[in-house]
């Protein structure tokens, strides 16, 4: 199985998003680089709106992710409640 990945700008909002990703995807690897945070996982990775909202303590629209996103790898599936990345093989 290949790794999917997402990279976010290293800032206050992203830190909550990363916390939410870690909570919902316990096997992820989080790599801190200058100014950015890269998160990788085998096969699949999901960002759930509810978990992010809980961490931030406010409403959060999944599409707000675009503001802090740097790059990603994997097939994207997005709806009102989550954004997920996956590889088919």
């Amino acid at each position: 199985m290949s790794k999917v990945y997402i990279a976010l700008q290293d800032n206050d909002e992203s830190r909550y998003i990363v916390e939410a990703i870690e909570e919902d995807n316990p096997d992820v690897t989080v790599i801190h680089m200058p100014a950015m945070i890269r998160i990788e996982n085998e096969g699949r990775l999901t960002v759930n709106r509810e978990t992010v909202e809980e961490k931030m303590g406010r409403d959060w629209d999944v599409q707000e992710l675009h503001v802090n996103l740097i790059t990603l790898g994997g097939n994207v599936d997005e709806d009102d409640d989550s954004l997920s990345l996956h590889w088919n093989e």
């Binding site: 200058p34 100014a35 950015m36 675009h66 503001v67 740097i70 790059t71 990603l72």
Partner: peptide, 30 residues
């Protein structure tokens, strides 16, 4: 991504910011 991270590491806040801001669109382009 790695070059812009390098710009940050070399103290160039303006470049890393335009780089990552552009790249946030690239995620959609990808």
């Amino acid at each position: 991504v790695p070059f812009m991270s390098g710009a940050a590491h070399n103290g160039d806040m303006a470049t890393v910011t335009f780089g990552f801001s552009a790249q946030s669109d690239e995620a959609r382009h990808m």
